[in-house]
Amino acid sequence: MATFLTAPTRASLFLLLSLGFTRPVLAKAPDANAQGFAAYNKGDYAKAHALFEKALKQDPSNAFARLNRARTTTLLNQGKEDADDFDYCAFESNWMYLALADLSVAVEKDAQALLPKIDEDSKGLKALKASDEYKKWRKAISVFVKEKGIQEKVLGTTSDWWFLQPGQIPKSITLAADKRVMETQQDMSEHSTGKWRPLGSGVEITPDKKPARPWKLLAGKYYFDQGQRFFFEVRLEPDGEPTPADDSWKMGPLSLGPLSGDCL
């Protein structure tokens, strides 16, 4: 009986080799992102989130899985920011920053395909899109993709910026509607420290007792979670020759992004 079974097996192997098959044909592995999206459409967000996580472990560059994980991160965590024990400044666990980090990578990978889906989303990203963090992030994306009307979208009539220097207390700078540049002091009082006006796609700032200088709008990256994640922010940087380094905001850059001043 054993001899009878062995002969056909060897013959079959010889036939496979002669036809060029050196290994068995395996079925294609299921697409974890597609499986996750099916679970997402059924409302099983925990299962969908786990599958999107799996898809990103298999391929961290999967922009669609990034978008989908941002959706389930939002749906599974929305409202937690109102709890007494929520640590807003723990960026690595703040769901808003985690979702924005995924959206940032998705847009960086394929803005043409992903940004319209983000803009049209009224389900998974609804709670995130209602936040000030998202609205500031979206301004940065306008700069990143060079949308029309960048100046109006980012600056409007008034815009609030932060000047950050290592080891220094952050300074709040406002480009006010009356075209004054206002600096907020530590006692929360404000005083005028210059003037500004729109210029091209950026601005021209004339500090007190200083010459006028053009500043350009740029999209920058704010890294967190030990440099493993980032989200986009808008930056205003002086154009031309740099000014002598000091602790004044006049040396730039100024930043406008999702991060709250309380965490700087």
Rank of each mutant, 00 (worst) to 15 (best):
T3K: 15
I173P: 01
D87L: 05
R69T: 13
Y134K: 02
G240A: 07
K80W: 11
V203D: 01
L19A: 13
V203C: 00
T193G: 13
A130R: 03
G43H: 03
D119N: 14
F231V: 00
W196S: 03
L175C: 10
A106M: 10
P24F: 13
T3S: 13
T243L: 14
D121H: 12
A32N: 15
W196D: 03
V25Q: 11
E237T: 15
M251I: 15
D239H: 02
L15A: 10
M251G: 14
D132M: 06
G220V: 01
L103Q: 02
T74I: 11
F232R: 03
D239E: 05
P214V: 01
P170A: 09
E233S: 09
D262H: 10
N77S: 03
E120T: 14
T206C: 07
F37V: 12
Y45E: 08
V203L: 02
G200N: 06
T157L: 14
F37R: 12
G36T: 00
L217W: 00
E53T: 08
P170R: 03
P8R: 12
P166Y: 07
W215N: 01
A111W: 04
K42Q: 10
A34N: 08
A2W: 15
A130P: 09
G124E: 02
K42L: 03
G252Y: 08
D121E: 06
F230Y: 09
K28P: 09
G261M: 00
A106F: 05
V181E: 01
N41Q: 14
M1T: 14
A11N: 13
A46Q: 07
E108I: 01
T206H: 13
G79Y: 06
L259A: 06
E204I: 09
W249F: 02
A48W: 11
W137C: 02
F86M: 09
K209I: 05
A27L: 04
A113F: 08
E183N: 08
S18M: 11
F91Y: 07
G257Y: 00
P211A: 01
L218G: 03
M182G: 02
F231H: 02
P198W: 05
E133P: 00
S192T: 15
N62K: 01
Q58H: 14
T158C: 11
L13E: 14
T6G: 12
F64L: 13
I150D: 09
A2K: 15
L26M: 15
T22R: 13
K57L: 09
T3W: 12
S192A: 15
K216M: 04
G167R: 09
P116T: 04
E133N: 11
D187V: 06
E133T: 02
T243S: 14
R197E: 10
D87E: 06
D187C: 02
R10A: 10
P238E: 03
Q165K: 05
L218D: 08
S260A: 04
L199T: 12
D87Y: 02
D121W: 06
A34Q: 09
Y223C: 03
G202S: 07
R180W: 06
I141Y: 10
T158H: 05
E81A: 03
R10F: 04
Q168S: 15
A65Q: 12
P258C: 05
S159K: 01
A11R: 15
L56R: 05
T9S: 13
K153A: 08
K146E: 12
E241P: 07
C263Q: 00
S93Y: 11
